[in-house]
Simulated scan of single mutants.
Amino acid sequence: MALSDQDIEALKGISTATITTILLKKGLRNIWMRGAKPLLPGQPRIAGPAFTLRFVPAREDLATPASWASPISTRAAIEDMPPGCVVVADAMGVTDAGIFGDILCARMVKRGVAALVTDGVMRDVDGVVGTGLPVWCNGYAAPPSVAGLTFVAWQQPVGCGGVAVFPDDMIVVDQDGAVIVPKDMVEILLTEGPEQEQVEAWIMSEVEKGVPLPGLYPMNEETKQRYKNS
């Protein structure tokens, strides 16, 4: 079942650090995508359903500029992207071929894409920044995608930054990177996330008052009671 706009807004209020902590307690250790770093500082926290793209190693007969006009192409995939999705591109960690540039990113903006996340790199960086599309990636490179990758599919399970991502998993991105929230665990985050954020804000206020960490972080029973009474 699709999440409501209110649920997605609520997820935007939960940091990726909090998400990883809560899901770690539930047994999920591998939800943070390695190499997916904010292209610019200060990008907003964004949440949305994953729209997946899959690249494989370049093969000379397939990875050609002519392939960009194929029915199986990044261009065709972009026309399937729904508003509000977070595009997750599995580029196998390749860092010497930029998977997207300014023209494709500009089209994603027109499609209403919320953000792009990849373990690969971008090209035409000045132009990409100019489109306003928030991007999390592993850097930038001048060569085009076909110099190192072959695009093969969209909306399939992928591995991005060492993390299994399925279409419609929820993605949350902020300055600490990109995490996935499995669809059946979103409700747990919506229940526990805001409370943990509130607790940690209170702990920070105590630290600023000069309270020592032992018994405060993590809280012992006395501190828990003090928090409840605050």
Rank of each mutant, 00 (worst) to 15 (best):
L39G: 08
L39H: 04
L39K: 00
L39T: 03
L40Q: 15
L40T: 10
P41W: 05
P41K: 09
G42D: 12
G42P: 01
G42I: 04
G42R: 01
Q43C: 04
Q43P: 00
Q43G: 01
Q43R: 01
P44A: 11
P44L: 12
R45W: 09
R45T: 15
R45Y: 08
R45H: 09
I46D: 00
A47E: 08
A47R: 02
A47M: 07
A47G: 03
G48Q: 05
G48F: 10
P49D: 12
A50F: 11
F51Y: 13
T52A: 10
T52K: 02
T52W: 02
T52Y: 03
T52S: 04
L53C: 10
L53T: 03
L53Q: 11
R54D: 07
R54L: 15
R54I: 02
F55S: 04
F55V: 02
F55G: 01
F55D: 06
V56P: 00
V56S: 04
V56G: 03
P57L: 14
P57I: 12
P57H: 10
P57K: 10
A58L: 10
A58P: 01
A58T: 04
R59F: 12
R59E: 15
R59D: 14
R59K: 14
E60I: 11
E60P: 00
E60A: 15
E60M: 13
L62Y: 11
L62E: 15
T64A: 06
T64M: 11
T64S: 12
P65W: 09
P65G: 07
P65I: 08
P65A: 11
P65K: 11
P65M: 06
A66P: 01
A66Q: 15
S67I: 04
S67W: 12
S67M: 13
W68N: 15
W68D: 15
W68Q: 15
A69F: 10
S70L: 05
P71C: 06
I72R: 05
I72P: 00
I72K: 05
I72Y: 05
I72V: 14
S73G: 04
S73V: 00
S73P: 01
S73E: 08
T74P: 01
T74G: 08
T74W: 05
T74L: 14
T74K: 09
T74D: 03
R75K: 10
R75C: 02
R75N: 13
R75S: 13
R75H: 12
A76F: 01
A76P: 00
A76L: 01
A76Y: 02
